[in-house]
Write a protein that binds this DNA or RNA. Structure first.
Lengths: 150, 150
DNA sequence: GTTTTTTACTTGCATATTAAAAGTAATTAT
DNA sequence: ATAATTACTTTTAATATGCAAGTAAAAAAC
């Protein structure tokens, strides 16, 4: 097995008790937060949806990260209504609480990396009113949540 | 060369124009933001200081990340006053603007990862008044900056 | 109802990155 | 003059990544 499945691992190795370090232990890589971003800002909900986003994640990495995020309670996998082969990935409340992290990442990137401004339709809205944007995204996720109770 | 030195590389490969993705292209790993944290919250300023922090970074990784962060304008390396072998690492304004990202990471980690609360002396202060804490840290960095102008 | 397509993965392999330990070279302290 | 610091670099082994191809179940098309 090249991409190790942490689920079969027993130890959840933490490098220290620092909350920043522990957060990075979970999603400190180039892909995990992009999956969270897609669930948060776009309509990305199935495995296939994730493979279609701009950064072109490899399918083995995607499967590994979805499992890792699920193991860590950041996303949940539900059965897709009316389709037995598809899964429906959702952000858990724990995952939704990463919104502020992503907002700050987006603001920093927008400020220091050229061309990113126009390409992220949300950045303008975020910069205009950060807490309003946060509430809006959180509300969207909650509403979707209600729609998915059976 | 096992740890590739990006400085000799020409291409700055960006996976997409998304500001979140581009940010992660630079510091989306388990170590870079810990270096930024140490410069931001602690008195860590020399190579040796970094090797002493709790997460025990390997020296080759440290050297690589310091170079990468410097190449990306997030930190600067100054000569250490009165010592020709030491270097003095500092956060640039671009690096200091990562404070909000680290604050949100710390808040998330503090909320969802046990034991991290008591171990980060700053977390209480952050939670009590986020923007006050931000201003304080920013001011500290600016003052240190002034002290280091010759 | 049989073939084709879609969907969600898994596998194999080459390459890249990481970690741990040891080594080096230039100061700096004793 | 000798020992210790400091800031790296190198070596080697273990892991992780990226790409291409493969698989198995279900769904859609014919």
């Amino acid at each position: 097995m090249q991409v190790k499945n942490i689920k079969t691992d027993e130890k959840a190795e933490m490098r220290s008790d620092c909350p920043i370090s522990s957060s990075l232990d979970i999603f400190g890589d180039k892909w995990s937060l992009l999956i969270v971003r897609d669930l948060m800002l776009y309509k990305t909900r199935t495995y296939g949806d994730f493979t279609k986003s701009a950064e072109k994640i490899a399918t083995n990495i995607l499967a590994n990260r979805l499992q890792l995020l699920e193991d860590n309670g950041i996303i949940t996998k539900l059965p897709y209504p009316g389709n037995k082969v598809k899964g429906l990935y959702r952000l858990s409340p724990k995952g939704a609480d990463l919104i502020p992290v992503l907002i700050e990442l987006a603001i920093w990137g927008g400020k220091y990396i050229s061309n990113s401004d126009e390409c992220s339709p949300f950045l303008k809205e975020v910069k205009k009113n950060k807490s309003k944007f946060l509430k809006k995204v959180m509300l969207n996720l909650l509403q979707e949540d209600e729609n998915n109770r059976d």
